[in-house]
């Protein structure tokens, strides 16, 4: 059973009289362990798709089965719970809490989880170690570089051992060196078995994925495997 099954997904935004069709019948599956990049120019609907896939929004029409269950059958509280336990998010603008330490930021999802508090410290340190920031544990996020901030965000996304990680333009605010560092970590996570959906408009970044779905005007333009997958320590050129 695929982790994600999307069938004829539509999203219409209505603002007064004007209706904008952001997604017009998108269908695809994602298997557990896959690394899928969603590409497309701005306005193609990729952010809308990510929001629905990430349980941050609901579709207007069509079906979206996550882990075998239709999104519309989840209550609001269940949606929050799925986001907390089964999904991890990495955003373009990091979205870390200011004036708060790296450790506290990474612990944040645990606050809303059922994980006993005695385990929080260990889990957070493990996740921070995975992104190579153990030496920055007690630094405030404002003292970190962009690349480091994004690595904190990845650690935060990892902490609840999610089934899937959504990364929305994770390298968008980074220079190419930090960007490649972040993409290497994401690639490694995929190698360790994490399912990853990456939103990007950079072809180079997309080539870390196994498969690229290209959207245009709310429809899938192409869906193909990546022949020469970028991984490891290759030079990252923007």
């Amino acid at each position: 059973m695929p982790l994600i099954e999307v069938h004829n997904l539509e999203k219409i935004y209505s603002e007064g009289e004007t209706k904008t069709r952001a997604l017009c019948g998108v269908s695809f599956d994602v298997e557990a362990g896959e690394f899928v990049a969603v590409m497309g120019p701005s306005g193609s609907g990729k952010s809308t798709l990510l929001h629905i896939l990430g349980f941050l929004d609901r579709q207007t029409k069509g079906s979206y089965l996550f882990d075998g269950k239709e999104l519309n059958e989840y209550t609001d509280n269940e949606v929050a719970r799925v986001r907390n336990e089964k999904m991890g998010f990495v955003f373009q603008s990091f979205n870390l809490l200011a004036r708060t330490s790296v450790l506290e930021n990474v612990k944040l999802p645990l606050l809303y989880s059922t994980t006993p508090q005695s385990k929080w410290e260990t889990l957070a340190k493990k996740a921070i170690d995975q992104v190579g920031l153990s030496h920055r544990l007690n630094h405030l996020t404002s003292q970190l570089s962009g690349g480091e901030k994004q690595r904190v965000a990845i650690a935060r996304a990892l902490i609840n051992e999610p089934k899937i990680i959504f990364a929305d333009e994770p390298t968008g605010n980074l220079d190419s060196k930090s960007g490649s560092g972040v993409m290497e970590i994401i690639g490694d996570l995929n190698n360790q078995g994490h399912t990853i959906i990456l939103i990007t408009h950079e072809t180079y970044t997309a080539q870390y994925a196994q498969r690229i779905i290209t959207l245009r005007d709310g429809e899938i333009e192409s869906d193909h495997k990546v022949d020469q997958r970028r991984a490891g320590k290759e030079n990252f050129i923007k």
Partner: peptide, 16 residues
């Protein structure tokens, strides 16, 4: 607002 959005994305419920 952003902090609230983030907290919700990370699993905070309306009640939280």
């Amino acid at each position: 607002t952003r902090e609230i959005g983030l907290r919700k994305a990370l699993g905070a419920t309306t009640k939280n």
